[in-house]
Computed example of a mutant assay.
Amino acid sequence: MQVVITAVGPDNRGLADPIVHSVTALGANISEIQMFDHDQESVFSMLTRVEIDPGQRTKVEEAMAGVAESTGLSVRTWSPDICGRKPRVAICVTFRPETPRAILEAIQDGAIKATPSVMIGNREKCHSLADEFGVPWENIADEDGIPDDERLIDICDEHQVDYIVLARYMRVLPAASCWKYAGGRIINLHHGLLPSFPGIRPYHEAYASRMLTFGATCHFIVPELDAGNQIIYQSTFTVPPGQTVDEVVRQGQERNEPHCLVEGVRRVVDGEVKLHFNRVVATHR
């Protein structure tokens, strides 16, 4: 089976060695290693993807707990090879209800085979939506909507979340959060076509460029904002010449964005795609 190990913490010497030595001593085959030092913040981040005998998983987890204790790193072990249950998802939201509603309805209808474990918001706008579907609600922000990023990760840990779905969550996750759930575990909806329109107003930017076709992008999150190689799914719609930008935005938000995110999440949950060395690859089952 495959196991993804992430480690984040204060930068120091010799942090990678105990992780590598521990898994290889258990007979694991290392298929991917990524490391990054945030020099200005003095933060060390590492992702290790290994293949192990399923019977060794508990020993790997115990070994990583030991590494965390001895190094002070925040270490997580996770496997995409989920058996005996549905994947657990956290749905992160801000204002717009269309995309989280579409995810919850797709789960309810069986189109997405997952369990909505928690809904996390930095505003109260979607609280009633969580109540409607019987999903636990957590507001992690202050009165200005500024989120507690560490609390977001803590909540996902508490609910043993497999995938974090950013359903028009209008805050940028810090690099440390991205590394803690790295390896294809954070799925984002960008309301524009990447890589052409990566900004915060992609509809307006495309409209200003006299585009008649608009779209949305579902992609895996890596520490670089809206990077272009992690695209899971894109969907588009075309408008006639002279269409107003307000109507373009309405069509995108109400119809195209929900469809795009649902299909992207379905592909990930069903194991059709995965992230490997920050590139989306098709799985062969």
Rank of each mutant, 00 (worst) to 15 (best):
F197Q: 02
D37V: 14
H38W: 15
V118W: 01
L193M: 13
M211P: 11
I146N: 06
G72L: 00
I33T: 06
G84E: 15
G14T: 06
G134N: 02
F133Y: 01
C260Q: 01
R201E: 04
I107H: 09
R255E: 12
G184C: 00
I107K: 05
A90S: 15
L47Q: 10
G9D: 05
A141S: 05
D53T: 11
R185Y: 02
F277Q: 14
A68I: 10
L261A: 05
D17K: 10
S79N: 07
N278C: 13
V172S: 07
R96K: 13
A90M: 08
M211H: 12
A282E: 06
V161S: 03
E254Q: 12
R279L: 07
I221W: 15
I30L: 03
P54K: 11
P195N: 01
H219A: 08
F133D: 02
R255D: 15
W179L: 07
V172T: 06
P54W: 11
Q253H: 14
V281Q: 07
I103W: 06
V248E: 02
V280F: 09
C218M: 14
A167E: 00
H191Q: 06
N139R: 00
N122H: 00
E32K: 05
I107W: 00
E51L: 12
D142H: 09
G121P: 08
Q56M: 07
I146E: 01
A25L: 05
P258M: 08
Q160H: 10
C83G: 15
D81M: 12
H259V: 10
S196R: 05
E205Y: 03
D142Y: 04
G66I: 08
I120A: 01
V93G: 12
E143G: 05
G84M: 12
Y169T: 00
E51P: 15
N188T: 10
G84D: 14
V269S: 14
A182H: 11
M64Q: 06
H204G: 09
P97H: 13
V118R: 04
R171P: 08
D246F: 03
C83E: 14
S70L: 15
L104M: 13
L194P: 01
I232Q: 00
D246Q: 09
I155Y: 03
A7R: 06
